[in-house]
Computed example of a mutant assay.
Amino acid sequence: MSDPIDRAGLPPRFWENKPIHQLTRKEWEALCDGCGKCCLNKLEDEDSGEVALTRVACRLLDDDTCRCAHYDTRHQFVPDCIVLKPSNIEEHLYWIPQTCAYRLVYERKPLFDWHPLISGTAETVHDAGLSMRGQTVSEFDVADEDWEDHIIEEPT
């Protein structure tokens, strides 16, 4: 499968040499590893604030590619889809998966060997078993009140 993210021509290991708020849009987008976890519906405990992942995916997630099927126009379909940016990452950190490159770069931690920027291929996230490929159910198929039945442990 081809990777929809253009990583060609990016400076080597740019994420280690630039503050997160100075990344270009292309660099920012290249950090996405294609795991699909950000497109999973999450449940937040009102008392503790703890966030649980569910295998219930946004209606726009392509389960084969683990990418948004309508990324550029997603807000037409899902108005409350969060646009993660360097300027708002801190406020959204509580729900960002532990293995996410956006979180890792923000926390000044190294990317994993399976990340496409390290491995050179988008398939390594899937090969490592860290993506949601083939593991989701559509939000159209599960009633909101049944999401708890689909809570999963975050692949790490």
Rank of each mutant, 00 (worst) to 15 (best):
A8W: 15
A8N: 13
W15T: 01
E16G: 08
N17Y: 15
H21Y: 04
Q22S: 14
L23F: 14
T24A: 06
T24S: 10
C32D: 04
C35I: 01
C35W: 07
C35M: 05
C38E: 00
L40T: 03
L43M: 09
D45V: 02
D45C: 11
E50F: 07
A52Y: 15
T54W: 10
V56F: 08
A57H: 07
R59W: 15
L60D: 03
L60M: 13
D64M: 14
A69P: 04
Y71P: 01
D72P: 06
H75Q: 13
H75I: 01
V78F: 09
V78L: 12
P79Q: 13
V83M: 10
K85L: 12
K85C: 03
I89C: 09
E91A: 10
L93S: 01
W95K: 02
I96F: 08
P97A: 12
P97E: 07
T99V: 11
R103A: 00
R103N: 04
L104W: 08
R108A: 07
R108N: 13
L111I: 00
F112C: 10
D113C: 08
W114D: 08
P116S: 10
P116D: 11
T121G: 05
A122D: 12
L130K: 09
R133E: 07
G134R: 08
V137H: 01
S138Q: 05
S138F: 07
E139G: 10
A143I: 07
D149Y: 08
D149R: 13
H150I: 09
I151P: 02
I151Q: 06
I152R: 00
E153R: 04
T156D: 13
